[in-house]
Design a binder for these strands. Structure first.
Length: 312
DNA sequence: ACCCAGGATTTCA
DNA sequence: TGAAATCATGGG
């Protein structure tokens, strides 16, 4: 997984550029990628350089700003060094997006979905932050999820520079409490967050990161155990198949994962309901998504999700 | 006041 | 295996 892009400059105002290897606009659409609801901490800068929209967020404890023009992606990263590998991994720049689009272009509906924002990329976020974010996502909405993640960061995370907080480590969150989380408006998800924090504070996050090395289905079964499984005491609470799929897709490189929420179910029934009758179970939709779109089904899912939410 | 939200768990047939 | 009730709350 080596990036095709080169880096120019170093330090706090480095430029992540494509000078010797131009970045096709269709390879990265910042607005679609950072604003489509797969990550929750990116904000558009009100005053952008020369009228361009700039996005600022936190990647693994580094404050990062991104903007672009026709052929170049610019990046500034707060701190002493410019970590190109960090950005490369987060944006998954080693993945040939054009090849992915080609591979999932197997019907008019998905082609139409991709046409509006061909540069929408699936991110590869920090698994721990991704896990908590999507535990918070259940029966919620993108705006509220963002507020909750931000609130947790401000209260339990380290302040990197004034006003910018790292997402809290498992240890930091485990120093909180269900009551405190509730008071912050997390609702019944407060207990899920606290238990996940305790588990990862005590047992580490290696087991979570290690899921990237497994086969997709084995990885999901490792997170979501059957109710009568004897290892149920080790189970994460508040993590069912949908949240698991989000974590596997958005942070662990499992492009086959096909998260099915209300929007995706709606989209699937709307555009594929003729050829396929979906049952009520989660996997009746998710399995069809995988068999229909193949190994990059997760990408198809994200395009359909985005179209269903923003399109007509 | 009413409905919906990037669902999961528990209960009961 | 599979419905149905329950969960806590902000935002439209």
């Amino acid at each position: 997984m080596k990036s095709a892009w080169t880096i120019i400059g170093e330090g706090a105002s480095s430029i992540f550029s494509s000078a010797s290897n131009p970045l096709p606009p269709a390879e990265l659409d910042l607005e679609a990628t950072l604003g489509c609801g797969q990550a929750f901490r990116w904000k558009q800068d009100a005053c952008a350089d020369e009228g361009r929209v700039r996005w600022t967020g936190i990647i693994s404890g580094r404050v990062v700003s991104l903007w672009q023009d026709d052929a170049t992606l610019y990046c500034t990263m707060h701190g002493e060094s410019f970590d190109a590998a960090l950005l490369d991994r987060y944006l998954d720049l080693g993945l040939d997006l054009a090849a992915v689009r080609r591979e999932i272009s197997i019907d008019p509906h998905i082609v139409a979905a991709m046409a509006s924002y061909p540069g929408l990329r699936v991110l590869q976020q920090d698994p721990w932050e991704c896990l908590i974010s999507f535990i918070l996502s259940q029966l919620s909405n993108v705006g509220r999820i963002s507020k909750s993640v931000e609130a947790l960061s401000e209260r339990f995370g380290t302040e990197i520079i004034p006003g910018y907080f790292a997402f809290p480590t498992p240890d930091a969150l485990a120093r909180g409490s269900v009551e405190a989380f509730r008071a912050m408006g997390l609702g019944y998800r407060a207990e899920y967050v606290y238990r996940a924090a305790r588990k990862c504070a005590e047992g580490g996050t290696e087991w979570l990161n290690g899921l990237a090395q497994m086969e997709y289905r084995a990885a999901r079964d490792h997170i979501v155990l059957p109710l009568n499984d004897k290892r149920v005491t080790e189970k994460l609470h508040g993590v069912g198949p949908k949240v698991a799929d989000c974590v596997l897709l958005f942070s662990l490189g499992h492009y086959e994962a096909f998260p099915v929420d209300v929007h995706v179910r709606r989209a699937m029934e709307r555009w594929y309901g003729q050829e396929q009758t979906f049952g009520k179970s989660y996997d009746s939709v998710a399995d069809f998504g995988r068999s229909h779109f193949g190994r990059y089904a997760g990408y198809a899912q994200q395009y359909l999700f985005h179209r269903q939410r923003t399109g007509e």
